[in-house]
Amino acid sequence: MALATTIQRYLSKISEGIGQLFVNFFDLIFGSLQKLIGLKAMPYVFVLPNLLIFGIFILFPMLLNFRYAFTGGTSFFPDQREWVGLANFKQLLTCGNFLDPNSCREDLFWRALFNTGGYVVFQVGLMVVVSLITALVLNRKIRARGFFRSVYFYPVLLSPIVVALIWKWILQENGLFNGILTSFGLDKIPFLVNAQWAQFWVIIISVWAFMGFYTLILLAGLQSIPANLYEAASIDGADEWKSFWNVTLPLLMPQMVVVLVLALIRAVQIFDIVFAFTGGGPGTATLYLVQYIYSKGFASPSKQFGLAAAASLIMAGILIVLTVIQQIIRKEEE
């Protein structure tokens, strides 16, 4: 026992010594550096590693994207690409009638744009409502609450490709769902080859896959609402519905805005699940913007990098506009 205590004490001293050594080591380096460059410059030193990663892997490719958007050809190296000015944007934006993709020079871009718009409206709307309802239910004192919280969060942990393949096996013509229907003597439903069904299931699956994440944010918001506010509302004669409208919803609004912004950005960027699930079909019914960009830039045998880069800049513009609108709404709410 005494030996164990002694060993423990020594180990503790050693680890303390090593820790101190590290502290002193960095103190020496950063102390010297501070003397050299001054206190005001020090924050930049600490930010530098992250800034480098951001600059190399995000900012630089973003700037490079501008170069690609204004150049043509299939060459990969920017310096070997021919300057074409606004030709790529012109090709994307030339339309006889902007509401009719068939009248546009680059009809697939417009189909993708309209599909994305429709998807964003329905998917984000459904996502916010379903996440809110789930969060409200999981916030109540129900049996096996922890279990249900895990169940709803579980799909978030799955790879989007896995999610897509699972659902594809369920919904394809000879899949599980149709197997059940035919076993009851019912006709098969063409879930993947009918445009409306395919669009419907893409929304349902993406909501199923991501709602756990948004539910968690809203649940945290619900738990931060003080219980005495509900007690006060109850004393004032408010029923559950009135409490929800007058207490829960206003106090949950910051989290709701966060959920809305995140869901919106994610919806505009939808790609992996749909690509593995329907491949953008039937026809182009579930072709969304990112898949269009991917197809033009990488999957297309002709590698139209310029057109893909121009389309991605337009998409970035849409995202910026959406974010600005969100910020304005948020400020007004505050």
Partner: peptide
């Protein structure tokens, strides 16, 4: 014809899987 060959997505879908399964 198996509609999932031509109507699903931007990929090279082969009819051979339907053939192999005897359908």
């Amino acid at each position: 014809t198996p509609t999932e060959v031509w109507l699903v997505g931007d990929s090279l879908n082969s009819c051979i899987d339907f053939f192999k399964s005897g359908d």
